[in-house]
Amino acid sequence: MNKLLMHPATKPAVFLLCLLPFARLAYGAFTDGLGANPAEFLIRATGDWTLRFICIVLAVTPLRVMSKWNALARYRRMLGLFAYFYVVLHLLCYSWFDMGFEWGDIAKDIAKRPFILVGFSAFVLLTPLAATSFNRAIKAMGAKRWQMLHKLVYLIAGLGLLHFFWMRAGKNNFAEVFVYAAIIAVLLAWRVWNYFANKRGKVKPASAGAVRTG
């Protein structure tokens, strides 16, 4: 598996795979294939894919440690950037199709509605993480500070969930929210467990090397 992950063609292949949801949405938008309410479809789908990429990126470290596929670390940064890519699309779709780029209305909407404020905060917090996703930034900041900053992703995952929960709360429709919550809870709980296991010296440190390799 490590060999496959290190193969020069694998990373571009994963990159294209991550673009598939975008390609499908773009195709649907241009061929009228998104149902009766295409704007709502695009806003929801880009939100869903943001949350999915956050789950995927949070799964990298647990999977790497448990499977010993250390080459997985090479993919973490790209997956994180895809989460940012989809949240930017999400915000763009909302600003465009729901608000018609009326910036004053958008600002008011963000201030007035807690669920939009929470989602917007998650986007704002994700921005410095995306902006420091290149090697020079890590060098300039120092690995330790860089890592501290990128721990924000845990908070961002929580805010994203809360945003989704609140959106669905009006219609009491929590089934999907609970699925994402359960996945994120397991991925975060693993980290807590791993931290204490490390302290007791039973498991090799999980995070060593992760920063260097991305």
Partner: peptide, 11 residues
Amino acid sequence: PRWSQATERRI
């Protein structure tokens, strides 16, 4: 409480 009712999208 969570969205404006000032406008609507005509399907």
